[in-house]
Design a protein around this nucleic acid. Structure first.
Length: 785
DNA sequence: TTTGGTAGGTTTTTT
DNA sequence: ACCTACCAAA
């Protein structure tokens, strides 16, 4: 072989995708059909065959981990090609030192200039450059050292606004649901005024008001939330032609992975960059320019966060040539699956066929039938965990090629991990839990990050308040109140008050001294920002603030764990400096805010992986356990009454099934502990939708069809059009309330889930063994006294 | 100001 | 069953 082509070892559809040069292309890629291969090969092809400058390519991935992997795979592709060209031998046969040198040259020339990352990380970088050119409709402005507020920061800010500043009833305006509504608005691309326009009722107007004050607060802190990282670039591009033209020119080739999970704002961002804001399709100029998106509507699982897979379905209309699907030049389907056994694919195809809203597509197997799927009924969640761990032990024992890293346990909610952890721990089997409480959400990490943020962005009063008395330095509540009062009165950031000597001296001497010391500490490191590396500043702050010392002085088990975590953060900073080549604290902080737990999941770590079905998207494992297959858990009870939501749950199940390469197990418990009580459970609807001949049951007998109301009926595509029953609409429901249902008779409420307008209740009807989960807005129920 | 106790909420999924 | 946030007592 004299020359390896990038097109070798690709099937015709993949080749068509890879060879695509200019104009729009939608790649409909089923699970396991080699879409990452198509993406990476296409990028390499653009650079090698069409001499595209890597700096002109923008590739959007769904997670940071996916971005990292994509870069590694492209680097590998180039290194292999160049090994052939320069030395005539495969990369693997080069001397290690030579191979390393070759790779680092490829990295410098190709990989480093590429823009590959998530929407959030890519556009936060653009904002670091251009946000000072932006002004929002109310004249708010931000500077490039802005802080990125995480979900808990945002949550407490909203709570503060709702309860303290606007004095709203926090039962009617639950901070959580208000937060959700604001996030939704930003994901739709709505300003507070737009929100008010779309929802002119009292609730909509009030939330718009909270949104407005919330933006004030964000701006006052020079902070942004996750949604702003997308929504502000959109507004900036709309209001400033020059900025848009610059980035439009800059990114001639745009690629988006997991396109089915983009939201309206993200779509708008891509549209603006691609078209330079041109609305008329006939005027688009596709010379030396492309938009290439890859997605699978059947794997759209992020509706709750604003994702809308109709964006994928409308791609050809938005960018395309308008020809019918069959002879279009703007769509390629990848349907051949290289990952899973035929059995697993048949199960996946059968399941997803129950959905109505989809692009018709079947996964075509390329592999043999394989082992049957096994379904286990356990007595309770502990027995379920024992079954799973036993199966893992047995399989690992049987085959020396199988290792712990080949197994994944997938569940619907994070709370389900515990029993599996207990049993795995008991047997000393190494495992990793992805998600749940994130590393960066831990108290000690948030404290240290607050120090860093305050140094970078002194306007960040949220962070200042978090650490002003941590560790205790004798700045008490009354002192802090006085200072924040002063800041509020003068309408300046808290820092202005703190750093103003004369104002501080109006405090009693006993209180003034620690404040002055605190200010000096931050000021000192603020001045070092330009020259010092992130690790140096972190080290200095930990030392000078006495934070670590204080932890060590506590000498408890817990404090030691915390100190270890803080050191872990320090290690992360050091690693970041080595890998990224940008040692600034600002760069590290952005990385921290946008990091997800999934990023720690390393291949070859030889550990059993535990994670939610959502986290498993994009991953694959030889053996997969789909656990907790129970009505109400999965599908989740919130989806039971809503056909569209139920279809989303089914897609989630489809994602789970298609993670498996060789073997797939389902399990459910007939009784499960919920909020401390034992509750009977019935098998998931999804189990009954799988072809019986593919499934081996541990106990004879078929999987009973779940009887919960509304779920066994054929799902129609019509959205939830059922009018809310008037009589129960505004009722307040609480545990113990008695009620009557025409079908089930009298019963009493055992649980109330959620709050505000999104309430679901669990009701025990003595006549019926099973307790029912109802939506009081829809269910025909009558309250009794 | 800090500690300890308890009431009340929590379980959907995440960049 | 667990965690947090708030309140009373030292």
């Amino acid at each position: 072989m004299t020359q390896v082509s990038l097109l070798d070892a690709l099937n015709p559809s993949q080749r068509q995708a890879v060879q695509h040069f200019c104009g729009p292309l939608l790649v409909v890629a089923g699970a396991g059909s080699g879409k990452t291969r198509a993406l990476t090969h296409r990028i390499a092809h653009l650079v090698r065959q069409h001499q595209v400058d890597p700096a002109e390519i923008l590739a959007v991935t769904f997670t940071n981990k996916a971005a990292r992997e994509m870069k590694e795979r492209i680097e590998q592709l180039f290194a292999e090609q160049e090994a052939h060209e320069q030395f005539g031998i495969p990369l693997a046969q080069l001397e290690p030192a030579q191979a390393t040198r070759l790779k680092s040259r490829v990295y410098q020339r190709i990989i480093k200039p590429l823009w590959v990352g998530t929407f959030h990380s890519l556009f936060s970088q653009i904002l670091r450059l251009d946000i000072e050119k932006y002004q929002d409709p109310k004249g708010r402005k931000w500077t490039r050292n802005f802080s990125i507020f995480d979900e808990s920061d945002v949550q407490s800010l909203i709570k503060e606004i709702v309860t303290k500043q606007l004095n709203l009833d926090d039962r009617k305006f639950d901070p959580k649901s208000v937060r959700y509504a604001i996030s939704n608005a930003k994901n739709q691309g709505w300003t507070p005024a737009d929100l008010e326009h779309h929802q002119p009722n009292f609730r909509g107007r009030t939330i718009a008001q909270v949104y407005e004050v919330y933006q004030d607060q964000l701006a006052a802190n020079n902070g942004l939330d996750f949604d702003d990282l997308i929504w502000i670039p959109v507004q900036l591009f709309r209001q400033n032609e020059q900025v848009l033209a610059y980035w439009h020119q800059r990114f001639r080739h745009i690629l988006v992975d997991e396109y089915q999970d983009t939201n309206r704002t993200q779509y708008e961002l891509i549209r603006l960059l691609t078209t330079n804001g041109e609305m008329q399709k006939s005027k688009l100029n596709w010379q030396n320019r492309s938009i290439f998106v890859v997605g699978d509507a059947d794997q759209s699982i992020y509706k709750f966060r604003g994702a809308d897979f109709t964006i994928l379905m409308e791609f050809q209309e938005a960018f395309g040539d308008g020809l019918p699907d069959d002879d279009t030049r703007t769509m390629v389907k990848l349907e051949e699956n290289y990952r899973s056994t035929a059995t697993i694919l048949q199960a996946a195809n059968a399941l997803i066929d129950n959905n109505t809203e989809r692009i018709e597509k079947v996964l075509k197997p390329t592999r043999s039938q394989g082992d049957p799927i096994f379904c286990y009924q356990a007595d309770d969640e502990m027995a379920e965990a024992e079954f799973v761990v036993n199966a893992i032990k047995r399989l690992e024992n049987k085959d020396p090629d199988v290792s712990w890293g080949d197994f994944a346990i997938l569940y619907r909610t994070n709370a389900q991990s515990r029993p599996f952890e207990e049993v795995l721990m008991r047997w000393g089997i190494p495992y990793i839990v992805v998600g749940g409480q994130r590393f960066y959400d831990r108290k000690e990490i948030k404290d240290v990050v607050a120090y860093l943020r305050a140094v970078v962005n002194p306007a960040d009063s949220l962070s200042l308040l978090r650490i002003i008395n941590v560790p205790r330095r004798g700045i008490g509540k009354s002192t802090i109140d006085k200072l924040t009062q002063a800041a509020a009165t003068l309408n300046v950031p808290l820092w202005e008050i703190l750093s103003d000597e004369t104002s501080i001296h109006t405090l009693a001497g006993r209180s003034a001294k620690p404040v002055i010391q605190f200010v000096q500490l931050l000021e000192h490191w603020h001045q070092q920002l330009a020259q010092a590396k992130a690790t140096e500043i972190l080290e200095g702050l930990l030392r000078d603030s006495g934070y670590l010392e204080d932890l060590k002085a506590q000498a408890t088990e817990e404090a030691e764990e915390r100190a270890r975590n803080v050191m872990e953060l320090y290690n992360a900073a050091r690693q970041f400096e080595e890998e990224q080549g940008d040692p600034s604290l600002e760069a590290f902080l952005s990385n921290v805010s946008l990091a997800s737990d999934l990023d720690n999941l390393q291949e070859g770590s030889e550990k059993v992986s535990l994670m939610t079905l959502h986290s498993s998207k994009g991953l694959e494992f030889p053996v997969v356990f789909l656990v907790g297959m129970e009505q109400g858990l999965f599908p989740n009870f919130r989806a039971l009454e809503d056909p569209a939501a139920l279809e989303e749950e089914r897609r989630l199940c489809y994602v789970g099934i298609t993670r498996a390469r060789e073997q797939l197990f389902f399990s459910y418990a007939s009784e499960r502990r919920l909020y401390g009580n034992r509750e009977a459970a019935i098998p998931s609807l999804f189990l009954s939708e799988l072809p019986k001949e593919l499934i081996e049951l541990d106990k004879p007998g078929a999987i009973p069809r779940p009887l919960s109301r509304g779920t066994t009926l054929p799902i129609s595509a019509t959205p939830k059009a059922r009018p809310a029953a008037r009589h129960s609409r505004s009722e307040q429901w609480s545990i113990g309330d008695r009620l009557e249902h025409p079908q089930f008779g009298r019963g009493h409420i055992t649980h109330v889930f959620g709050s505000g307008e999104r309430v679901t209740i669990a009701v025990k009807f003595p006549g019926i063994g099973q307790q029912k989960i109802l939506d009081p807005r829809i269910a025909p129920i009558q309250k009794l006294n």
